[in-house]
């Protein structure tokens, strides 16, 4: 159990979350991918705190920020899903293409 092992696990979580966020057609599943990605960031922050700078509290504060960001992401995501579903009966990302360049 060392910093490298923690960071590799965190990298795997970020990669899996990124894959999910990029591939899922459902907006709700896409958000699950983002949550998984942030999950990896939490793990990396804990590992950095423990193995590099345990004397300070910055690592812990970073975890608090990321956990809050996860909650905000989910709340805002579901609000957007509700709004777009109410307006257009859409629950798939492929159908919501108004902003396509």
């Amino acid at each position: 159990m060392n910093l490298q092992a923690f960071l590799v696990v965190a990298a795997a979580l970020v990669a899996v979350g990124l894959f999910g966020a990029l591939t899922q057609q459902s907006i709700v599943m896409l958000m699950m991918g983002l949550e998984l990605l942030l999950n990896g960031v939490v793990l990396a922050a804990a590992a950095f705190w423990y193995f590099l700078a345990p004397a300070g509290t910055e690592g812990q504060v970073l975890i608090v920020i990321v956990v809050t960001a996860m909650a905000i992401e989910m709340a805002a995501g579901f609000a957007v899903t509700t709004a777009i579903y109410r307006a257009k009966r859409i629950d798939m990302t492929d159908d919501a293409a108004e902003l396509r360049g």
Partner: peptide, 24 residues
């Protein structure tokens, strides 16, 4: 319910290799 699986897999694997390589 997948779309663009191949491109996403390439991006995800590249990200993992870059991050894990950096960590190691």
């Amino acid at each position: 319910m997948f779309h663009n699986t191949r491109g996403a897999a390439v991006i995800a694997v590249t990200t993992f290799v870059a991050l894990a390589g950096g960590a190691l």
